[in-house]
């Protein structure tokens, strides 16, 4: 699942991953993401940090409170991406502006894409 409040980035990331054969769900903020998580169980979360309504920190805290464990990759344009990743106990980070292969490689560390056609 991808969570980002910038619609262009959200769609682009989703498209890239879908093109690689992943199934992708999207959400535009943390609260939106939590609602969707009640219906699906994704294997990996791509999470923007600075978002309205519920930001990355609030979102990961709620995950912990609800006992949901799943690997999180944070996507951020901030300079201290590494520190933020540690703060929310994320599995890794991709720094914006990332290249297509950065994204794909980061995701593949957690999950190989299903065999594409």
């Amino acid at each position: 699942m991808v969570i980002d409040d910038d619609p262009s980035i959200l769609i682009t990331v989703a498209e890239i991953l879908r093109f690689e054969g992943y199934e992708v769900a999207t959400a535009t903020n943390g609260a939106d993401g939590l609602r969707i998580l009640e219906q699906i169980q994704p294997t990996l979360l791509l999470l923007d940090m600075r978002m309205p309504v519920l930001d990355g920190w609030g979102f990961t805290q709620t995950l912990r409170e609800r006992g949901i464990t799943l690997p999180v990759l944070i996507m951020t344009a901030a300079q201290d991406a590494r520190r933020w990743a540690e703060e929310v106990n994320a599995a890794g980070y991709v720094a914006k502006p990332f290249q297509l292969l950065d994204l794909i490689e980061a995701v593949e560390q957690f999950q190989e894409p299903p065999q594409s056609e």
Binding site: D6, S8, I9, T12, A77, P97, F98, Q99, L100
Partner: peptide, 10 residues
Amino acid sequence: KTPLTTLVAQ
């Protein structure tokens, strides 16, 4: 960086 992310990746 925000529009640039989309530009590069897209």
